[in-house]
């Protein structure tokens, strides 16, 4: 059972240019917000921007949006595991760091 070919028509170069413009724009916006002190929690803000930018890169430049679930599962599964692990490690660190008080 052959899988349908990549939906090439859905990927004219314009999609790449739009994605590129979005990435550059968000990078500029990120700098502006941080430099101007407009973020409530800077770490959460830059992490969120990073996740959005990564998603755009993955979907457009790595063509993940055309891939079946099984391929999408690799980055998504890894990301979930990574978040769990980093959260667990950070939580355990926060709970014992001598500098918290």
């Amino acid at each position: 059972m052959a899988r349908p070919q990549l939906k090439w028509a859905a990927h004219p170069p314009i999609a790449y240019f739009l994605a590129w413009a979005f990435l550059v724009f968000t990078a500029l916006l990120e700098i502006y917000f941080v430099a101007a002190g407009l973020t409530y929690n800077t770490l959460v803000f830059v992490t969120s921007v990073g996740i959005v930018q990564s998603s755009v890169i993955a979907l457009i430049f790595q063509h993940l949006r055309e891939e079946p679930q099984s391929v999408k599962a690799f980055p998504l599964g890894s990301l979930v595991m990574l978040i769990i692990l980093v959260s667990a490690a950070v939580t355990s660190v926060l709970a014992c760091t001598p500098y918290l008080g």
């Binding site: 941080v34 800077t42 830059v46 930018q53 993955a58 790595q62 063509h63």
Partner: peptide, 21 residues
Amino acid sequence: GIYWGIVDIVWTFIFPMFYLI
């Protein structure tokens, strides 16, 4: 291109880590 993508993705986190926050 997929490989370049992962290089970019890593950078989207490294950039703010060292240049912004």
